[in-house]
Design a protein around this nucleic acid. Structure first.
Lengths: 211, 211
DNA sequence: CGCCGGGTTGATTCTGAAATCAACCTCTTC
DNA sequence: GAAGAGGTTGATTTCAGAATCAACCCGGCG
């Protein structure tokens, strides 16, 4: 029983900012991106954020809630942007190109964030209550609605299943980005434009009513 | 210190079979499919296999090796079948349809196995040394080679990146299967044929040289 | 100037699951 | 039918890492 240490908690320096929460969230994304959710410890997140271990638990009930927050805020933003561009454009071809644009732009702006959302969270039954089914359904339903409308307008070929169209579109996008993450495809400078065009136009000529 | 129990190990009943190893592997696939790699304990696998805890460690060095084996045997078989059909068919359109056939057939034959390979292992940095990069590269390279040859024969549109073609093809397939796993698309009876056709033909009309 | 209050700290505790291991059992061999 | 070999068992050990918590530090307020 070596006497109780005296040098515990060095204390609060709320200086300005106060957005420790945001700092922690950002750090969590970075750590998840490099080591994966299960592969990292709360200690890693804290260190990355330059913050004490315990503070993570001040802002988030537990590790799972931290993941869930990353998840929800990330996908929430993405879905919102998708919804926006779908609403803004009139024709299917423009909509598909805009969706492609959003996906690749998100990647360009924050590769690690996209990496986490795509490779990490969206799939594996991570930890606890991340509602994959719900989010996937939401994205696919959103796009499916777009395809259904287009079909009603006669822009989408008859007989195609709108949900399946949504699935193949996002599947193509996702795998193209995955290939980028794995450095199999080059997205620097000119490559990115070519890639976007190939994905969007290739998909479109497979589904448009007028070849 | 209540005396050492006397009723340890009830012992070996190799009866016939002897393929406890296979039983364990199969059980691992099932458990991974329903609870995920990280979400399950070795105890779960053992129980599912109807086998003692320790036996799992008799056949596999550790949890990671178990996962890796599931991974390698699963993808190994899939890749081999892909390689076969690509070699057997002459034209790109037939090849793509055959690849689609293989993917959906695998799913019909063993949904849980496919689920694990796709949703669980292929993506998230599960556990330790599962070589995602390698496997992804292998599949994508395989398909990319197919597209490159087709391009040389003039069957694939000029200017398309073969690797990106491979990515979008497998992306479409994968997401279509994911949607099936999540019960968003119906694959029973007639639905399966329609789905295969939509995926393969849609993709083809986006890349074939002759519209 | 003393004393709140709440953001902040990190050593300590606790949990649960991986890995170990010695006993055990059944079949095979001579 | 005794000895040996290897498959099989599950209680025990071990340990990483999540979660706790009492002490702390700082600004504000009376």
């Amino acid at each position: 029983m070596s006497g109780t240490q005296r040098e515990r908690g060095r204390g609060a320096a709320p200086g300005r900012d106060g957005d420790r929460r945001q700092t922690i969230l950002r750090a969590a994304v970075d750590v998840f991106a490099s080591k994966g959710y299960h592969g990292c410890r709360i200690a890693d997140v804290a260190r990355e954020a330059g913050v004490a271990y315990g503070l993570v638990y001040h802002y988030f009930k537990n590790k799972d809630e931290l993941l869930q927050t990353v998840f929800e805020e990330g996908w929430g933003g993405f879905i919102q942007r998708i919804r926006d561009v779908i609403g803004r454009e009139q024709h299917l071809s423009a909509q598909v190109r805009a969706v492609t644009e959003v996906a690749f732009e998100a990647y360009r702006h924050d590769p690690r964030g996209v990496r986490v959302l795509i490779l990490e969270i969206a799939r594996s039954p991570a930890g606890g209550r991340v509602d994959r089914h719900g989010v996937f359904s939401e994205v696919l339903s959103l796009a499916a609605g777009m395809f259904r409308s287009a079909q009603a307008r006669g822009e989408l070929r008859e007989g195609l299943d709108p949900i399946l169209c949504a699935a193949t579109l996002f599947g193509s996008l996702e795998m193209a980005l995955t290939a980028s993450v794995l450095r199999l495809v080059d997205l620097s400078g000119e490559g990115m434009e070519r890639t976007k065009r190939q994905v969007a136009d290739g998909f479109l000529s497979g589904v448009l009513a007028t070849g």
